[in-house]
Nucleic acid binder design. Sequence first.
DNA 1: CGGACTGTTGAAATATATCAATATTTGTGG
DNA 2: CCACAAATATTGATATATTTCAACAGTCCG
Lengths: 267, 267
Amino acid sequence: MLPETGYMSLLKAAATDRPEYPLHRFNALAELTRDEVRDLQALGEPPVRCRRGETIRTEGQPADGIHLLYEGWVSSSVVLRSGKRLIQKLHLPGDMLGTPSMVLPAAADTLTAVTGATTSFVPNATLQELFARRPRIAAMLFMAAQLERLTLMDALASTGRASATESMARFLLDLHHRLGMLGAVEQDCFDLPATQEMVGDLLGLTPVHVNRTLRGMVKQGLIEMKGRKVRLVDLAALRSLSPLPVRKPLFEPSWLPAPSANGSKAV
Amino acid sequence: MLPETGYMSLLKAAATDRPEYPLHRFNALAELTRDEVRDLQALGEPPVRCRRGETIRTEGQPADGIHLLYEGWVSSSVVLRSGKRLIQKLHLPGDMLGTPSMVLPAAADTLTAVTGATTSFVPNATLQELFARRPRIAAMLFMAAQLERLTLMDALASTGRASATESMARFLLDLHHRLGMLGAVEQDCFDLPATQEMVGDLLGLTPVHVNRTLRGMVKQGLIEMKGRKVRLVDLAALRSLSPLPVRKPLFEPSWLPAPSANGSKAV
DNA sequence: CGGACTGTTGAAATATATCAATATTTGTGG
DNA sequence: CCACAAATATTGATATATTTCAACAGTCCG
């Protein structure tokens, strides 16, 4: 019972000193009301901490909810029949993990902590309730799903059709952009906790070739690397290498429903 | 003004003799009430017919709505910076086209009719109203988006990481499955109106290599081809070639909201 | 301190792209 | 219905990016 006690104490600590769920993804879509913020912050169960390499959820397991990522990096991966692993996405804080599996009896992907990570579980029933009570948040979740589709479409465009260097450029620019929104980029320099093997599984390349590609880009003066820090030296050149430009989603789409009136009091 | 008259008469004809929008995608998720069916059938503007090769909507154009596909095949494509074209998906009847662009100021993809096709436009404002009025349909649309994400994830798994033959097997099995739901498959034989170049743009292969791959599969006895008809001769072998199994979505997920009570009268 | 990951580099093998030429099909106007 | 042009399919020879295999050097972490 020893592990249990550690887990319980962690839960207790989280309940009293709960970290904040980053809402920048929602804020990019619309200005949230105070009630909406409160609802979203209270959505999940108490956040749980897991260590690097730990599995949060395994492909094929029954899945009856999603996970909110509070802190850290988490990968979403699938194993192909050939035995190869495919990483579909590297999730950053603020992402909602595992939503595609909501329509399946079992989880479609495996969620693994790339760094230490804090996540919070949200049962499907809770989401159902939110959908019925807050049509505006429902619409935003729908839009978030469409944004994820766009991301996947762009990934599809870069993988297979583009050269290794082009794919890599896109990957680095995407991270640069997403980490930038979290304030984790300084002078175009950021932490890349993924191993080269992971990057390979993400881009559809051999780890060996990932290495050669990165070294080549360093030699060309496109990037600098030191340990697990990367600096994008020549952003312009990287952008012109990338098969697609980074997308700018629309701010406050006109067709969002009005905020619901039912909150703690007025709105 | 000549084209206008043709267009107008077509609209009028459609208004009186409107074709049905295939709802099998929704029916796979939940049993629709009569009111829901009525709402969905009345959702779009009068359907419009377009001919093979015609463009329904171009990438970069302002997009303030989506398209329901009533009949025919439509491709969704993007042009990369390199000039290469990427086809993201071949849409079949019942699909909703262009939803990812709802979160963007301009369309993310170009919609082109692969065969003659009938589509109906749905302004974003109409969808907004539906979201607010029918939370259950909103939830189903959300789930449909998640299903599309799964499809894209699988496509990502097959493109770039799998061999040409494996990708092709998956592509053919996917069509076999989707066309089957529409009743367009007889004895594992179906029409494939896409050119080999299109298939190449879809799988990330050269048209030349698409040809070699198909011919190879014929020689191996996996498939048969005659004109633009394909027959999947050895389904078992194709399935074991495919990098991922075809997914079976969950029927009637328990967390769907209850149908709204407001029907033909009150709102 | 040592063992296990992780990164780096080289040489050979291979799947796919590219270039090019010819056959076949499809669509269109007479 | 035919004839003709354009689009599409087919096949061969060669080029190339990436993989695979293999060996070794760092680096992390208990």
